[in-house]
Design a binder for these strands. Structure first.
Lengths: 139, 139
DNA sequence: GCTTGACTTAGACATTGTCCATTGTAGGAT
DNA sequence: ATCCTACAATGGACAATGTCTAAGTCAAGC
């Protein structure tokens, strides 16, 4: 079930109840929770887990490259466990729903040398914005 | 000098000293200040301008479509006066420097229908990340 | 079953942004 | 030129998100 948990264990992570819960909460496709949402769900399984621990644990997972930080809106970072398949995001401007997408083309190749200003360009994020079917129907 | 100021005046904006200062601070190319940076520079010209006014004024300019909100890092929104030529951003992962870039290609066309999940896709943001020449030299 | 260093906790603190009631003022009307 | 009035600015409280620290707790190796 939890591939994420397995990978973390394989890296010699000290396995605590708190970390297990955070990893379990984050597992899946199209999962993009904020730190607070992760905390809320973690609390429902492990009532005494603290906010600081959730933030720490998420931060460590990001450092290990097992989870991606995404910021599709300005309110809070979101955490995406799907770190091993490169992908971009499609965000509903109204309700904030997020889907992972895999566009054709390679944006990195589209940035000409004379537009790089001498930077060593290492990555690119693409965020598509629109209205999801749900919000379009309700509107 | 200030095209931005001219455009705003043309929209029937009530012109106050505060708004003038904010518009002047924001004018130029490759300008991507945070609200607090705008406030700091505005204060040096108009000591009694308040934070709330800067936030309000920036928000209004964004609503009018004369200024873009950019969030290249998670710390604070940045404001980009270059709203009338579509462009994307190249960000230094170390020092946060930002350049406007104009990549070839059209990312919107690269998103296949079966990856749109029924969304009405209206826009796309592309953020390139790398290390700027300055930081590369110091490293 | 100990020991130890890493992990967790609670809460104070920092940063960024928003709101509201009050005061001030730009720009049209007189 | 002066007055009015709606719109703008002020400042300070508040909210949301995230970070830090000191003290207590526990997983994992011996």
């Amino acid at each position: 079930m939890s591939d994420l948990l397995e990978r973390l264990r394989g890296r010699g992570w000290r396995m605590t109840a708190q970390r297990r819960v955070v990893a379990e909460v984050l597992d899946g496709d199209h999962v993009h929770l904020t730190a607070d949402e992760v905390h809320a769900r973690a609390v429902s399984r492990l009532p005494e887990i603290s906010r600081a621990t959730v933030y720490n644990t998420l931060g460590e997972m990001v450092s290990l490259g097992e989870v991606l930080e995404v910021s599709t809106d300005r309110r809070a970072k979101r955490y995406d466990p799907n770190a091993h398949r490169p992908h971009h995001h499609l965000v509903c401007a109204q309700c904030g729903a997020i889907r992972d997408v895999h566009p054709a083309g390679n944006p990195l190749a589209d940035l000409p040398t004379d537009e790089r200003y001498g930077f060593m360009v290492s990555g690119v994020e693409v965020t598509y914005r629109g209205i999801c079917p749900n919000c379009a129907a309700t509107a």
